[in-house]
C-alpha cells in the first residue's frame, strides 16, 4: 500500500509538469501574439515591442520554456495587469472560496447520490425508483446558469429565505482565518451566527453545482447496485443467513462503490470547470469568477494561473480516488 501511494504521488508530479508544459504550449505556440494581447488593441508597434522584450517573448521558444518552468517551480505565475499584483497571491486569496464551494457541493452529491442510488436499486421499479430516475435525468439535462437563476428567483426573490448571491454580506465580520474556509473557521472560532449566514449563502450555489454530479453518481450507483445485488456472492451471503440490511449496505455497496468512485473523480474535474459559470451567476468570489473577469479584461496570466490550479486540484482529487480504490479493493494493492 505504501509503495502504491508513493508511485501515485510520483505520477502526480509528472502529470503536473505535463499540464504546465501544455499551458505553455497553448499560450506560445497557438496563433495570436501574446505581447499584442497584453498591450491591448490601441497599442502602437513600439509599445508592443517593449512589452515583448519586457516579458522575454523575443527569446527563442526553448529558452522561454526553461524560464517559464523555472518561474513556475519557484511559484512565480507572473503579475496581473489589471490589479498589478502577483497572480499567485490572488489565486491564494480566491481559491479557498472555490474549494469550500466544491467540497460542499461534492459532499452533497455523494451523501445524497449514493444512498438514493442504493435505495433505488433495492426498490427497483417502485414509485421511489421512478421518481429518482426522473430527478436524475433532469439533473444531467438542466443547464447550470438557467437552473441557478431559477433557484435565485424562487428561494431568494419570491420566498426571501436565502440570499441571492455572495459569500458573506459586507456588514458581517468574517472569522479570523485558520483554514480560510468560512464554514470551518466560523465554527472553530465559535462564531455560530457567521456560520449560519455563510451556510445560507452557500446553499444555492452548492445545490446548482452539485445537481448534475449528484445525478450521475446516483445513476452509476443504482446501475452498479442492481448488478452486484444479482451477483453470486450476494446469493451466497443470503444463503448463509446474513441480514438483507447488512448485505445491501455493506457487502453490496462496497462492491458498487468502485465504479461510483471513478465517476466521483471525473465529476470533480467537471465541477471545478463549472465554477466559472456558477460563481458568475451567484457572484461567488472564487477562482471561477476571477478567471472570467480576467479573461474579459484580456489579462491572460491569471487565466493561465487558474488553469494550472484547476489542473492541480483535478489531479489531486483523482490521486485520492486512486488511493481510495486500492483501499477498497485488495486486488489492486499489489497491481
Amino acid at each position: 500500500m505504501l509503495s502504491f501511494t508513493l508511485r501515485k504521488l510520483a505520477a502526480l508530479v509528472g502529470t503536473m509538469l505535463g499540464i504546465a508544459a501544455l499551458t505553455f504550449l497553448i499560450t506560445n505556440v497557438a496563433p495570436g501574439d501574446p505581447a499584442r494581447l497584453v498591450a491591448g488593441p490601441n497599442a502602437t508597434e513600439d509599445m508592443v515591442e517593449t512589452i515583448r522584450v519586457q516579458n522575454g517573448l523575443d527569446k527563442p521558444v526553448t529558452e522561454q520554456f526553461v524560464i517559464y518552468m523555472s518561474d513556475l517551480v519557484r511559484g512565480d505565475l507572473g503579475t496581473s495587469i489589471v490589479t498589478t499584483r502577483p497572480v499567485l497571491d490572488e489565486l491564494l486569496r480566491y481559491a479557498p472560496a472555490t474549494i469550500e464551494l466544491v467540497l460542499v457541493a461534492m459532499a452533497l452529491g455523494i451523501l445524497v447520490g449514493v444512498p438514493m442510488g442504493m435505495l433505488s436499486a433495492v426498490y427497483r421499479n417502485s414509485w421511489f425508483d421512478h421518481a429518482t430516475r426522473i430527478f436524475s435525468i433532469s439533473g444531467v439535462a438542466l443547464p447550470a446558469f438557467w437552473f441557478g437563476i431559477l433557484l435565485q428567483l424562487l428561494f431568494a426573490v419570491q420566498m426571501g429565505w436565502l440570499p441571492v448571491s455572495g459569500r458573506l454580506p459586507l456588514v458581517a465580520l468574517p472569522p479570523e482565518p485558520i483554514t480560510h474556509l468560512l464554514l470551518v473557521d466560523s465554527l472553530l472560532r465559535g462564531q455560530f451566527d457567521t456560520f449560519w449566514t455563510a451556510l445560507k449563502h452557500i446553499i444555492l450555489p452548492a445545490v446548482v453545482l452539485s445537481f448534475p454530479c449528484l445525478a450521475s453518481i446516483l445513476r452509476v450507483n443504482r446501475a452498479e447496485m442492481i448488478e452486484v445485488l444479482s451477483s453470486d456472492h450476494v446469493v451466497a451471503a443470503r444463503a448463509h443467513g446474513l441480514s438483507s440490511r447488512r448485505i445491501v449496505a455493506l457487502y453490496a455497496l462496497k462492491n458498487a462503490m468502485l465504479p461510483t468512485l471513478a465517476m466521483i473523480g471525473l465529476r470533480f474535474g467537471w465541477m471545478l470547470g463549472s465554477t466559472v459559470l456558477v460563481e458568475t451567476v451567484f457572484d461567488w468570489p472564487g477562482i471561477g469568477l476571477y478567471a472570467v473577469s480576467s479573461a474579459l479584461a484580456s489579462d491572460f496570466k491569471p487565466v493561465i494561473g487558474v488553469t494550472l490550479l484547476i489542473g492541480f486540484f483535478f489531479i489531486v482529487a483523482n490521486t485520492i480516488v486512486d488511493l481510495a480504490y486500492a483501499w477498497i479493493d485488495p486486488r489492486l494493492r499489489n497491481a
Binding site: S231, D232, H233, V235, A236, A237, R238, A239, H240, G241, L242, S243, Y251, K254, N255, I328, D329, P330, R331
Partner: peptide, 24 residues
C-alpha cells in the same frame, strides 16, 4: 428465515470465486 438460512439449512456453490465477495 434468519433462524433457518445458514443455521439449519446451508448451501455450498459451484464457482467458489464468484460466490465469495472479493473485497472482504
Amino acid at each position: 428465515w434468519k433462524k433457518i438460512r445458514g443455521v439449519r439449512i446451508s448451501m455450498i456453490f459451484q464457482d467458489p470465486m464468484t460466490y465469495l465477495n472479493p473485497l472482504f
